[in-house]
């Protein structure tokens, strides 16, 4: 749910005080751009998509559902725009394509091996995930959304989000284990 201060700003913008929208942008633009950057891995594209998302959110502000926080709604718009870009450039990989390749069980990483992994290796492994898994990882670990909010952003049931998060981690374990072993 939106906080009262944010809600007041949104209502002012709806009433025609466009300049108030600046406060929302100041609050969320950095996080949104970095979220998009971790999805699309392109600074210019991330900023373009973020800009389009803010404009789209402004234009459709009358449709905003006050039951959810503004950030949830904004990220939903931004992610949809990002996926449109990615579909156009055909860099997405379906989750279904990779799910069949996943083993049921994998040994968890020992502390010793985990120390060997550099951040870069983890980033590469995340970047290689199907876009849906990547999105869940990004929203959960880096943008601090809870499961319900992620479900709202991704327009999926909470159960699906939990499954995808689990499988994303499973896939990362496999990938990182493979690099060591």
């Amino acid at each position: 749910m939106s906080n009262p201060q944010e809600l007041a700003i949104i209502r002012e913008v709806r009433d025609g005080q466009v300049e108030q929208y600046r406060f929302l942008m100041e609050r969320y633009h950095r996080g949104l751009i970095l979220h998009l950057f971790n999805l699309v891995h392109d600074e210019a594209l991330a900023e373009d998509v973020a800009q389009d998302a803010f404009i789209r959110a402004y234009e459709k502000l009358s449709l905003y559902n006050e039951d959810f926080s503004f950030s949830t709604w904004l990220y939903k718009i931004a992610d949809n725009l990002a996926f449109q870009h990615m579909k156009r450039s055909k860099v997405t990989q379906n989750i279904e394509e990779i799910e069949e390749l996943l083993p049921d069980d994998r040994p968890s990483l020992s502390e010793e091996t985990d120390k060997l992994f550099m951040q870069e290796a983890v980033r590469d492994a995340i970047a290689a995930l199907p876009v849906g898994y990547r999105q869940v990882i990004s929203l959960y670990y880096w943008d601090d959304f809870n499961y319900e909010e992620i479900a709202e952003i991704m327009e999926r049931p909470v159960g699906t989000i939990l499954t995808w998060l689990h499988r994303a981690k499973q896939e990362l374990r496999k990938e990182l284990y493979g690099q060591v072993g």
Binding site: L34, N38, E43, E47, S108, F117, Y141, K169, L172
Partner: peptide
């Protein structure tokens, strides 16, 4: 550990 690794792997830059 994996959770921590993922958490720390976030790429950042200054927009």
């Amino acid at each position: 550990k994996l959770d921590k690794s993922i958490k720390n792997a976030k790429q950042t830059y200054e927009p």
